[in-house]
Amino acid sequence: MPSADEIFAGLMQGAREEAAELWEEAKEFSINTCWSLASQLVLVGQAFVAGEFTKAEVTKYLETIRLQFIATLAAALMKVEGLAERIVNAALTAVRDAINGALGFKLIV
């Protein structure tokens, strides 16, 4: 059974090749995702060997891995949107203040 470190190295190599020129941007996200997956796979293997996980359960567990990856994508999108909301709202405040300041009274609240 390979160790989490060995699995992690393999996953990171694959991620680095897929990300290509976007690697620097994707690095942190990939490290977290790959390390988490590597640790998970080691536990799945250990549970299988110890008889705590049957083959049928390992098969079902693959769906959990897929859904966890999808959840990570959805959460990443929410984070990007949250950042965009902060930027636009800061700009809205600046524009509102500029308009009110130019008029000399609070037209927009």
Partner: peptide, 21 residues
């Protein structure tokens, strides 16, 4: 995109296990 992501396979002790659910 999520619905087009396939199920992964896993290799334990030389045996490749694929999802069938």
């Amino acid at each position: 995109i999520a619905n087009s992501i396939g199920l992964p396979t896993i290799k334990i002790g030389g045996e490749t296990i694929a999802a069938d659910t």
